[in-house]
Design a protein around this nucleic acid. Structure first.
Length: 508
RNA sequence: GCUCGGUUAGGCAAAUUGGUGAAGCCGCCACUCUUUCAAGGUGGAAACUGCGAGUUCGAACCUCGUACCGAGUACCA
């Protein structure tokens, strides 16, 4: 049987990095085994639906380089790929009613208000209300177990709002083998009678995943650890529907934790601590608040993927840098960790630095030019590429070129006072003038030649090169940081260099 | 509260079925390269494997207990 995995996000807003990691692992597993990776949109909650979120999800997958083989856009043999569309086909309704007919589920007419009141009442008595085997027969609950058949029929025929709840077994265990955690079992009567079909006719996640995974012939289901507690509901569903043989193998992925390790990483943590949590930036139209994404922060997609792959997974070698092809080759679900992984933004940046250094200068230049400051939009690709050649080893993000390498695009506004005070002597003025003349007459951009030439002038004037190099650097950049002086001279060009030197000595 | 999951240095984590001084990477410190800053190279500090028992010739790996952290406990996913 061929492997089929799926990523099934809800179109409710920006895509959390944890979701992307789930998608990545699903993709890697499918590709490693020559299978298919499917995108399914779980849009069953109409109250949380957000326009544009589905496009955003597609854009995210594309950017990350984990394209689905089947999706709402691409289509496939197992359409529809949106749950709202399958709902329109009546599939969920059909199976939910089948379960009621079999006695594995029942109608419940309790309104959300009824239940809220009941919960409050229980709470006052120091107890916790749960709709389950122990409570579903309570006389104050209105469901097809407590009401007479006639009453139920009447209520249904006048379209009284009703949900369908699963009837969890009163005895026994529900267990399964998780690909990552091994055997896990639950006391069936302890989990509640989850709603399967909502009053609006939409399925809840529980019914929808089971029906969809079955109909789409999903063989392996990867999801976050937060789903573990509801696994018994799904197992029970597979059993009652007679699909237990087709139940996918589950792998509950470890959570991605806040940097302090207390709790799931949330968008708010990113806002607070200053790092992205979404893959791509997202604009919340209701509140008009934008949230920064990894892409906009300047991350290379390959770096994000590599970083994510290591959040919870580790190869059996010491290799850290993996291309997508290598990840597919080496990924092994049995090597996924059980414990939650704390989000380490420093490590994310380190990955980006590694990838940045291996990206061709020309590509970096092209990308950087698109986000160039207004006054530098006309910078030539050729020049920018050369600048990257000197600068990329000291940058974290490509966009930093405009700030970190600012002196390549504008003359220094000031000179580091400390160095100036220590190194500048009035009698050096004539030496610099002489250097400038020589540079102009030679007009070379060969690094070795520039170096030899400069050192010669110094030797002839009986000046130690170390006394004059810092000043030369200052003239070019204004500060004591940056690439090699002669490398910079070569890139900036003789005329520019001579001008900068002239400007500096004129000010002393 | 209840159910389920987790617990190896500051972070990520390795140690295939119990067997050498508990890998490696990020971060940190130092040295080295360099006329600068990074990068690179070298070295270092840092874990009595949550804690306590037990089984064993031998346990990070097995058993029991205990502590702590997390997730879930919705007509949300």
């Amino acid at each position: 049987m061929s492997i089929r995995t799926r990523f099934a996000p809800s179109p409710t807003g920006g895509l959390h990095i944890g979701g992307v990691r789930t998608a990545l692992f699903s993709y890697l597993y499918a590709k490693k085994h020559g299978g298919k990776f499917i995108l399914r949109i779980e849009d069953t909650d109409q109250t949380r639906f957000v326009a544009g979120a589905e496009d955003y999800i597609n854009e995210t997958l594309t950017w990350c380089g984990i394209p689905p083989d089947e999706s709402p856009q691409i289509g496939g043999q197992h359409a529809p790929y949106r749950q709202s569309e399958r709902k329109a086909h009546g599939d969920y309704q059909k199976y939910a009613e089948q379960l009621v007919a079999q006695g594995d589920a029942y109608y419940a007419f309790d309104t959300p208000e009824d239940l809220a009141a009941l919960r409050q009442q229980f709470e006052q008595e120091g107890k916790k209300f749960q709709y389950d085997a122990a409570t579903r027969q309570l006389p104050n609950l209105k469901n097809s177990l407590t009401l007479s058949p006639q009453d139920v029929a009447d209520r249904l025929s006048c379209n009284e709002p009703a949900v369908i709840r699963i009837k969890m077994p009163e005895h026994g265990q529900l267990s399964f083998t998780d690909l990552i955690r091994g055997n896990i079992s639950f006391d069936a009567h302890l989990t509640d009678d989850k709603v399967l079909l909502k009053a609006d006719g939409m399925p809840t996640y529980h019914l929808a995943v089971v029906v969809d995974d079955y109909m789409m012939e999903i063989t392996h289901a990867f999801r976050g650890e937060e789903w573990l507690p509801s696994a018994p509901v799904h197992i029970q569903l597979y059993k009652c529907l007679g699909w237990i043989d087709k139940m996918p193998q589950f792998a509950h992925l470890p959570l991605i934790l806040k940097p302090d390790g207390k709790g799931k990483l949330s968008k708010r943590d990113g806002d607070k601590l200053g790092f992205p949590v979404y893959a791509l930036s997202w604009l919340n139209r209701d509140t008009n608040t934008p949230t920064m994404g990894f892409r906009e922060q300047g991350f290379l997609p390959a770096a994000v993927v590599n970083f994510l792959a290591f959040l919870g997974w580790h190869p059996d070698t010491e290799q850290e840098i993996f291309s997508m092809e290598q990840l597919i080759e080496h990924f092994d679900i049995s090597r996924v960790n059980k414990a939650g992984a704390k989000f380490d933004y420093n490590k994310a940046k380190w990955f980006n630095e590694q990838y940045l250094r291996h990206t061709p200068n020309n590509d970096l230049a092209t990308a950087a030019l698109q986000i160039a400051p207004e006054n530098l939009k006309n910078t030539s690709i050729a020049y920018l590429s050369q600048v990257f050649g000197l600068m990329k080893e000291r940058l974290t993000f490509g966009k930093d070129i405009w700030t970190e390498g600012g002196y390549f695009f504008a003359r220094p506004a000031s000179y580091d006072a400390k160095t100036l005070q220590k190194k500048w002597k009035p009698e050096l003025t004539s030496w610099f003038v002489q250097l400038n003349q020589l540079l102009l007459s030679e007009s070379t951009t060969d690094v070795a030649t520039l170096e030899a030439l400069t050192k010669n002038v110094a030797t002839e004037a009986d000046i130690k090169i170390g006394d004059v190099m810092p000043l030369l650097r200052l003239a070019l950049t204004g500060s004591m940081a940056g690439p090699g002086v002669f490398d910079m001279m070569a890139v900036m060009g003789i005329d520019e260099v001579v001008d900068r030197i002239g400007t500096m000595i004129a000010q002393q």
